[in-house]
Design a protein around this nucleic acid. Structure first.
Lengths: 359, 359
DNA sequence: CTGAAAGCGCTTACAG
DNA sequence: CTGAAAGCGCTTACAG
């Protein structure tokens, strides 16, 4: 009497059918070359016929191979935002640990390109199985990318995208579209017949990259050039946030202008700085939209000083970046190259459902 | 010379330390009673000391135990929304298949309580390891719940919540809060000095449950009673959607009223019916807010006839429901009882990032 | 080029 | 109450 025929078939079964040993089956399965062409083809056919799929648990249990995924992101001191992707990264690490995956996390100073390069080189020297990084410095990233290509090291971009690369995947937001969305949200609340003035604030730190901000600004401006162009004037303003007096000066200029703002769009997570200014100066009736769920931002949202925060589920970006390498390295699945995060609209009334990430 | 001491310790190690066989270790690990009290305690202590954690892969590989998770949700014909949770459920099923988990999915007719009861009984008879269901019919659900309790069958609520039950977990939205949010969104766009009339539309099918809708309505009304109460009049209206003439009649009444609507809040996914009416009758300048990413709703959102859709990531609800049972049954982890989904705000400009679920 | 055997960390009868 | 052995589906030397 046969054993339960519906049971999953394994290498033993296909070995039997092909009249070879399981060692040979293993060899064709892994494309090792020490198999004669005829047996290889025969085995391959049987595998096909029987619809064999490997048992990943057994594979992982028997295999001594360790995988290391290296991660390079800004340190939290220089950019608090990165706490969130890191959470997701850690959560994913926990899940794939059982398959012999280990993470190696390094950080760099967001305002210091050299630190990025150094850490990147250390990582390459450690010879990881996969590499996730935020290519915030364009030129240095190009160099790094070329090295990865040479080493045939699979790499994943997180948060920032660089075109024309052989990156395995990208996880991040469509920045232009997020600005576009912010504009639509602004218009819905503001524009009603009269003329409105809206200011785009780009909080800059002179030594740090700004690429994102410009894209967001572009989206924002594009929207208004397409919709309600005749009723809205957009004013763009770079603000140096390395000194707080600079910030105040810039905002004073806006507020004292004859063209009083109906709305302020702050193109990054520093929107809390602007909110604090509005609070201090008791300025009301200005719609304030910014980015990201930093603790300070959340507080101003709850106070009603910030109306909307645009978010991108950064935890999930981190989580999925890691999983994409797992899928590629271990499961040998093809992974999607472009993975845009949702552009979440957060307001006072729904924020509580976005603040604790769990998978 | 010792082998790599940093390697993970297994039952073999603890057997050696305790001077017993691995069989005995296994017995204390699984609380089987055929172990003397002294050895049990000794082994337990060593386990503690060495910080043993089981290797789940090996466990799954060696064990012959199969787990079945039963799912009972409305069929897609009677309620198209359920396609989404189902996607998540299927995705989760795929992931835990390797740990010997199997899903058994049954559906009932959303407008037919009897079909719910019948399918539920079939499921109980099949003796599953865990049970996920949408308790949309209150009374029948209470009966079902009691049976589950008696059978000691762990059960998870999805989408609808019933209080005071021993359900393992709940995955769904905070309905009241979603209505509250919709109101805030409405106010932001509409209220500016004058008096506004806003209509709450509850599209009902006489034979189907309505609990959700009332909660959403409640949240919506509560908001305006707290904020801008003097400027906004809220009108509530039940609309029978079992016949389309009824719907048109009701909407005609609203539109011909002296109290012209500035906004319409439709409390469920049937908002496309209202949108179609507005389109046909060329009614503009009415803010229309509704629920869920049904294909028809998406189309009207893109046309600009619906301004906002409130969503709840139903795929994720399905996904996490399944995982919660996996965590409970297999990993023996404690799972959170209350799991509220995000209340997503979807508009034309961000919808493309919410329409394809991938994990 | 191919096979037989040991082992990954568990579970599961079986024997005592 | 306890131990020794076989086996889950693979991988990995080792021998030929």
């Amino acid at each position: 009497m046969k054993k339960d025929a519906a049971l999953k078939i394994g290498i033993k079964d296909i070995a039997k059918h092909a009249n070879v040993s399981i060692g040979t089956v293993d060899r064709v399965l892994h494309n090792r070359s020490e198999v004669s062409k005829t047996t290889r083809e025969q085995v391959l056919q049987i595998i096909e016929e029987l619809g064999y799929t490997p048992n990943l648990l057994a594979k992982s249990l028997a295999s001594k191979i360790k995988y290391t995924i290296a991660v390079l992101i800004p340190d939290l001191g220089s950019n608090a935002y990165w706490e969130k992707p890191l959470q997701g990264i850690r959560a994913a690490a926990l899940e794939i640990k059982k398959f012999n995956f280990e993470l190696q996390i390094a950080t760099f100073d967001y305002g210091n390109e050299k630190s990025f390069v150094e850490k990147a080189n250390e990582i390459l020297n450690s010879n990881p199985s996969g590499f996730i990084f935020a290519p915030v410095f364009y030129d240095s990233s190009l160099v790094l990318i070329e090295k990865c290509d040479q080493l045939q090291l699979p790499y994943v971009f997180i948060d920032v995208f660089i075109e024309n690369c052989k990156n395995l995947a990208y996880f991040g937001q469509n920045s232009v579209q997020s600005g576009y969305l912010a504009a639509s949200l602004m218009k819905y609340g503001i524009v009603n017949g009269g003329i409105s003035h809206i200011y785009v604030v780009k909080p800059l730190n002179p030594s740090a990259p700004v690429y994102h901000l410009s894209l967001r600004e572009k989206g924002f401006i594009t929207y208004f050039s397409q919709v309600a162009a005749s009723q809205v004037f957009i004013h763009s303003m770079d603000v140096d946030i390395s000194s707080s007096t600079e910030l105040v000066k810039s905002l004073d200029t806006i507020m004292e202008s004859a063209q009083k703002p109906s709305g302020l769009f702050v193109a990054n997570s520093r929107v809390h700085l602007v909110a604090r200014y509005l609070e201090k100066n008791k300025i009301e009736n200005v719609v304030l939209i910014g980015y990201d769920l930093l603790q300070e931002n959340v507080e101003f949202l709850e106070k009603g000083i910030i109306q909307f925060l645009i978010c991108q589920n950064p935890e999930e970006q981190g989580y999925k970046s890691v999983l994409s390498l797992f899928n590629h390295l271990f499961l040998k699945k093809t992974v999607d190259k472009f993975n845009y995060s949702p552009i979440d609209i957060i307001m006072k009334e729904n924020i509580e459902y976005y603040t604790n990430f769990k998978i």
